[in-house]
Write a protein that binds this DNA or RNA. Structure first.
Lengths: 333, 333
DNA sequence: ACCATTTTTGAATACGTATTCAAAATAATT
DNA sequence: AATTATTTTGAATACGTATTCAAAAATGGT
C-alpha cells in the first residue's frame, strides 16, 4: 500500500508537506503543492484513514446500534441516519444485536473510537447503560431509552398506546387481543401502559389468554400465538400490535389462514413505518414521521460531537398521530 | 481514554506484556497475567482497534457497497451478509451510493483499510472497476458485475427474464409493458435480453410506449410512468418489472388508482425478496434464495482474505426459479 | 549446586499520519 | 543592501498497539 512517505519521495518533499497538501493546501507553495498532487495521482495514493484517526483522535464515524432489518422501523431510521450523517460528512457503522449482549457490542463500539453513538436497542435497566452514559462518548438513545437519564428521542409511547386503543374500542370491539413487545423495553412498556389505561376505563381489561409478549428480535412466536388465538371459541375481533413489524407479521399469518382483514379481524400497529402506508397493507397505526426521528437523533449527536451546548439535556418526546387506514373496521355482531 | 500503557503501569509490567495477555495469554505467567487482567477490569480498559489495525494491517472488517434500503433486495442481502460475517468474526461497514460516484466510495473504502469488499452497485463499464480489480483487495461483485472479469455471484439473469416473460405470455397477455432498470447494469441488461428473446419468439415485440427505464435508486418516475400507461386507450394487461422493488412500487400506484391486481393488470417482479412472499403481496417473481446469495458472497470473500485458493476465479451463476403467486393471472378479453 | 535449555519479560521499533518547533527561504521595510 | 518580519519547509515526535530481539528468569538434568 502506498503511503504518504512514498508520495513525499516521489515529489521530492518531506512527508509533512504531503500531509499539509492534504489538510491545508494553502499553506504550501503552489509549485510544491502541484508536485505533490501529481505524485498522488501518479501513485494512486489514498490516505490511510486508520492512521489518521489514531493521531487526530476522531474518526468522523458514528455508530448506530440497531435492531434487526426484519423490522421496518429500523430500516427507516437507519436509512435516515446514514443519509443525514453522510451529508454532514460522517460515516455510519451499523451494529446489530444478534445474540451478543449490549455489553459486548459496547466494547466493540468503544474499540472503534467512533465519535458518537445512536442506540436503538437498549432495555431500560441494562447494567451497561451506566457505562455508556459515563463514557464521555456522545450518545443518543433512539426510541428505546434507559429508565433514568440519558439523551434520547422517542415518541410519547403512552399516548401512542392510548390513541390506538381508543380507536379500536370506539369501533365497538370488545374481544381485543394484544401482541406486545417485551416490557423491559421502554417503548413497549409505555405503549402497553397507554393501552391498559384505555381498556380499563372502557371496562374491558385485557384477558390473560389474549395478551402475548413477543420476542421482537425474531418474531418467531407470532405464527403459533396468532393461530392459537384464532382457534378460540370466541376469537378476538381485533388485535392490537405494539409495533408495525408485529402487525405486518400478524397479517401474514391471518391472511395465510384465509381470514380477511378487517372483515374477520382488525389489526393495528404502532410506528407508522413507510411500509405500513403501502396500498397492499394500508395498516392502521400511530406514529410520527420516522425519518424525522432519525434526523433529530443525528442532529443532536453531531451537536454534541461539535461541543455545541454540550451539557444540555437532550430528551425529546415527539407527539404521535393516529393514522386510520384500512386494517381496522367497525365491529358488527 | 485509557491505553495499554496505563494498564501496564497499574499492573507493574511492560506494555508488551499487556499486549501479550490480550493476544496470547498462555505466553505470560499466571501471576502477571492475573495482575494485568485485574488492572484491565479496574481501569475499564478497551483496546484501541484503530491502533491495532495500524500495526496488524488488518481490520477484520469487510465493506458492503449496497443499493438503497428502499429496495428489499438489498435489505435481504445486507442482512445475510452482516450476520454471516459476524459469525465468522468480521464486522461489516455499509456504504450506499447516494449521489457520490463509485469512484468516491471506492476511495473511502480503500482509506478504511477493510480486508475485503462486496459490491452490489456497479455499472458494467465504470472506469473505476479496473482499479478495483487490480487493487489487490479481495472483492466479490454481488448481483451486478463488470462486463468483463472480476469475481462475482449472480443469478442467471437472462434465464430469469425468459422464465418470467414466458409465464406472462403463456397466460395469454398480448399488451405487455416492461419496467426495466437502467441497462448499464448487468442485472437489468441480462433480464431484458431474456425478456426480449421470449417476446420476439412469441411475435410480441415490446412496443415503445410500453417500455420504461426506471432509475432504480429512487424509483421516483414509477408513479408518473405507470399512471400514464394506464390512461392509454388500450392499457397493458400485464406489467413485467425487472425487480421486486419496482413491482412493489408499481403495485402501490395501481392499487392507489383503484385498479385490481391481477384482475385489471398482472404484475411480476424478479428477485424473490422476502417481502414478495408476504400474503399481502404474493408477488409472482423469479429468483434464487436471496440469503444464500449473500452468504456465498461472504464465504468466497473470506476464503480470499484467508488466502485460500487465492487465484481461483470465482464467477458463480445461480439458477433462478419461477415463483408463481397471485399477482399474475390468465388474461381474458 | 552447577550448567544448559527453555520460557518469560521488557526495551525498542514499526505501522501511517498530523503536528510542533526550529531552521530555511522568501517577502517587506528601511 | 541590509535588516526585520513573514511564510514555507523538514526533522522529530506522538498516537496506541503488536512484534522482534536480546536479556533475565525459571526450569530441567546431572
Amino acid at each position: 500500500m502506498v503511503s504518504s512517505k512514498d508520495v513525499a519521495r516521489a515529489a521530492g518533499v518531506s512527508q509533512a508537506t504531503v500531509s499539509r497538501v492534504l489538510n491545508n493546501p494553502e499553506s504550501v507553495r503552489p509549485v510544491k503543492r502541484n508536485k505533490v498532487l501529481e505524485a498522488i495521482q501518479q501513485l494512486n495514493y489514498e490516505p490511510n484513514l486508520i492512521a489518521r484517526s489514531l493521531v487526530t483522535n476522531n474518526t468522523r464515524t458514528i455508530a448506530f446500534i440497531s435492531g434487526s432489518m426484519r423490522n421496518n422501523f429500523f430500516i427507516d431510521t437507519m436509512d435516515s441516519i446514514i443519509n443525514l450523517a453522510k451529508d454532514r460528512g460522517y460515516r455510519t457503522m451499523i451494529f446489530f444485536d444478534g445474540n451478543e449482549s449490549l455489553k459486548d457490542i459496547w466494547s466493540t463500539v468503544k474499540g472503534h473510537m467512533v465519535d458518537g453513538v445512536i442506540l436503538s436497542l437498549v432495555s431500560m435497566d441494562d447494567p451497561v447503560l451506566e457505562d455508556i452514559m459515563n463514557s464521555g462518548i456522545p450518545h443518543m438513545f433512539l426510541s428505546r431509552r434507559p429508565r433514568f437519564g440519558g439523551n434520547y428521542i422517542e415518541i410519547d409511547n403512552r399516548l401512542a398506546g392510548e390513541l390506538i386503543a381508543s380507536h379500536v374500542v370506539e369501533l365497538g370491539h370488545r374481544r381485543i387481543a394484544l401482541l406486545s413487545g417485551e416490557l423491559q423495553y421502554s417503548t413497549f412498556l409505555g405503549r402497553k401502559e397507554g393501552i391498559d389505561k384505555v381498556m380499563a376505563e372502557a371496562g374491558l381489561p385485557l384477558e390473560a389468554g389474549l395478551v402475548h409478549y413477543i420476542n421482537t428480535a425474531t418474531l418467531s412466536e407470532i405464527e403459533k400465538v396468532v393461530w392459537k388465538m384464532m382457534q378460540f371459541n370466541e376469537p378476538p375481533t381485533a388485535i392490537i400490535c405494539t409495533s408495525d413489524a408485529m402487525a405486518i407479521a400478524c397479517m401474514d399469518v391471518l391472511l395465510g389462514m384465509g381470514l380477511s382483514i378487517p372483515g374477520d379481524v382488525s389489526i393495528s400497529g404502532i410506528d407508522d413505518s413507510k411500509l405500513a402506508a403501502h396500498q397492499s397493507f394500508q395498516l392502521t397505526t400511530v406514529g410520527h414521521k420516522i425519518f424525522e426521528i432519525g434526523e433529530i437523533a443525528v442532529e443532536n449527536l453531531l451537536e454534541m460531537i461539535g461541543h455545541k451546548e454540550i451539557d444540555k439535556k437532550r430528551q425529546i418526546v415527539l407527539r404521535p398521530e393516529l393514522m386510520i387506514r384500512r386494517t381496522t373496521a367497525r365491529h358488527v355482531e
